[in-house]
Amino acid sequence: MMTPYGDDTATINLVIVDAAMRGRGLGRKMLEEALAEAGERICYLVSTQEDLPLYEKVGFAATGETVQHQGEPLLVEAPGHVTWSESGDHAHLVTLDRAAYGHDRSAVIEILRERAKFAVIRDAGEIQAFAAIRSFGRGLVIGPVMARNDSEARALIDFLLVHHQGGFVRIDTDVSTNLAGWLTRRGLYRAGGGITMRRSGAARKEGKPADHRSYALVSQALG
Rank of each mutant, 00 (worst) to 15 (best):
D97E: 15
E110V: 11
E72D: 14
R115P: 00
E65A: 06
D89N: 04
E65Y: 07
A107T: 10
V76F: 10
T66V: 08
L96E: 06
T95E: 07
L93F: 05
E77Q: 10
H69P: 02
H92K: 12
G80D: 14
A61T: 08
G64E: 12
L112Y: 02
H69I: 02
L93K: 04
E77L: 05
V82S: 04
D89V: 01
D89F: 00
I111L: 13
H92E: 15
L93Q: 06
H69V: 02
L93W: 03
R113D: 03
E114P: 04
S106Y: 05
A100G: 08
Q70P: 00
E114Q: 12
Y101N: 08
D104W: 10
A116D: 01
L112A: 00
H81D: 08
Y101M: 09
D104I: 07
Q68G: 06
T83K: 13
G102E: 07
Q70M: 06
G102W: 04
P79M: 08
K117F: 06
K117G: 02
H103T: 15
H103I: 14
E65T: 15
T95D: 14
H90E: 02
G102Q: 11
D89C: 11
P73D: 00
K117C: 00
A100I: 02
S106R: 12
H90F: 13
R113W: 07
G88S: 06
I109K: 09
R105A: 04
H81C: 04
D89E: 09
A107V: 09
A91K: 10
D97T: 02
H90T: 02
I111P: 00
A99I: 09
Q68Y: 10
V94L: 08
E114A: 13
V76D: 04
L75V: 15
G71W: 11
L74V: 09
E114Y: 11
V94M: 03
E114K: 10
P79L: 06
A61N: 11
S87I: 13
Q68R: 15
V94N: 09
L96K: 01
H103W: 14
Y101C: 01
T63D: 08
L96R: 07
E110A: 10
S85F: 01
L74P: 06
Q70V: 00
I111E: 12
L93E: 06
R98F: 06
V76L: 11
P73N: 03
R115G: 00
E72N: 06
S85P: 09
G64M: 12
V76E: 12
T83P: 01
E86V: 10
A62K: 15
S87V: 12
H81I: 10
G88N: 14
I109A: 02
A116H: 03
R105H: 04
E65Q: 15
V67F: 11
H92T: 14
D97M: 08
